[in-house]
């Protein structure tokens, strides 16, 4: 005889579908999709507003974290060991960063982050996600053909550079630590932070420009 344990089944169900957005997120999705469908508002209008705030609020927090990791080896180690814990030193913890993993680019490795299912993203450190990150095309292609996607972002990788693609989940989100650009020796963390771009921390940019 099989005994059914409703709680166990419920827990398993929730675990398997951990991408299920929160109740308010679903209420907003319902409103947004209905309003767009009925022609009350244009999707572009909503996206443009969000993008504007994405730039305004933007990824400054992530940039500070990356710059600190370049200048403070002990912090870098803590960041790589447990990013969710390490960023508490900046007071940046939030709902979406409890389980944050930092992955480092090296001379022979490049990291690229995607959320194939929806658009999980470390909002607390990178601000709003860019529109392309949420697009079906990026979500589908980043895993299947990461090098081609990177080419479209202007990143050409030699065959000697390995590409790692990280598929975000509701439980685990990723922050790419780009390589520190040459010619920045002696710079302090604040000056370095200005060089770090949002795309570099997602992995769609590799070589940061020294300005």
């Amino acid at each position: 005889m099989t005994e059914y344990d409703a709680k166990k089944i419920g827990d398993l169900h929730r675990h398997l579908h951990s991408h299920m957005p929160s109740d308010p997120a679903l209420r907003v999705k319902a409103l947004e999709s209905l309003a767009v469908e009925k022609g009350l508002v244009a999707q572009e209008t909503i996206d443009t507003w969000v993008e504007m705030y994405a730039e305004k609020v933007g990824p400054k927090r992530g940039a500070k974290i990356v710059a600190q990791s370049w200048t403070d080896p002990a912090f870098r180690q803590r960041l790589l060991d447990d990013a969710g814990q390490a960023i508490k030193e900046f007071g940046y913890e939030g709902h979406a960063t409890e389980h944050l993993k930092a992955v480092e680019n090296t001379a022979d490795t490049h990291n690229l982050v995607v959320c194939t299912l929806c658009s999980c993203y470390p909002f607390a450190v990178l601000g709003m996600s860019p529109i392309w990150y949420r697009s079906a095309a990026y979500r589908a292609r980043a895993v299947k053909e990461p090098r081609a996607v990177l080419e479209e972002f202007g990143v050409t990788l030699g065959n000697d550079i390995k590409v790692r693609v990280w598929d975000s989940t509701a439980e685990l989100r990723y922050l790419v630590i780009p390589e520190r650009p040459a010619g920045t020796e002696g710079w302090d963390a604040e000056r370095l932070a200005a060089l770090v771009t949002r795309n570099a921390m997602i992995g769609t940019e590799r070589d940061l420009q020294v300005t």
Partner: peptide, 9 residues
């Protein structure tokens, strides 16, 4: 700062 995207939407 938005903690979640639905807030911005």
């Amino acid at each position: 700062h938005f903690a979640e995207p639905w807030q911005a939407t």
